[in-house]
Amino acid sequence: MKLDLERLSILFVDDSPFIRTLVISSLKMIGVGHVSLAKDGGSAIDLIKKVKSDPMRAGIQSIDMVISNWDMSPTDGSMLLRWLRRHKDSPDRFMPFLMLTAYTEQQRVEEARNLGAHEVLAKPFTMKSLGEKIALTINRNRQFVHTRDYFGPDRRRQSGSLSAAERRERTDKSIDVEIVHG
C-alpha cells in the first residue's frame, strides 16, 4: 500500500543551492506536499521558531520532519539536532530527524544516533535510499527515551536479536521507569 505524502511538510537543510534545488524537485516528485528549505542549521532554527510562533507569516502550518546535512557552516546539522532535542526554545523535541553525512565512519553514524537522529544516510545518496529512509521514519513509530545521558528515539530497533548483556534490565513496571503516553 502507498503512502500519501500530500499533507506532509518537510524541512530540508543543506548549504548547497544545487542540492537544495535538486532535492526539492525530487521530494515534490514523490508527492511531498510542502518542502521548506534552509541553508544551514541557524536558518533552520529561525524557521522552526517562526513556524511555531507565527505560522501564517511563515507560510507553513507545521514541519513534520527535518532532513539535514551534517557539514554546514556556521551552524551544522549536529548543532541543529542538539538544539531540537535539548534546547528550551525547541518547539518540538520529538521532531523526526534524518541526518545526511559525507562522513561514513561508524563513529560519525553513532554520534548522529547518540544526538537523537531517527535515521542517518551516507552521501552519496540516491533518491531511492532517501525515499526508503522517509518511509521507514513514517512506518516505525519509535518510542522516545529520556535518560541522564540521552534524549531521542529508541536506539534499539531490532527486537529479538539482543544478547543478554544488551537486554534492558528495566521493564515498564520498574520503579525508576516512567511511561508517558500521548
Binding site: M1, K2, L3, D4, L5, R7, L8, D64, M65, F94, P96, T137, I138, N139, N141, Q143, F144, V145, H146, T147, R148, D154, R170, D172, S174, I175, D176, V177, E178, I179, V180, H181, G182
Partner: peptide
C-alpha cells in the same frame, strides 16, 4: 528524583497524516 528512565510513547501522527485511505 527516583525516575531514571522515561519512555514517551505517542501515537504515530506521521502515519496518520500519510496513510491516506489505507
Amino acid at each position: 528524583t527516583a525516575i531514571k528512565v522515561r519512555y514517551y510513547r505517542f501515537r504515530n501522527k506521521l502515519r496518520e497524516k500519510t496513510a491516506g485511505l489505507s
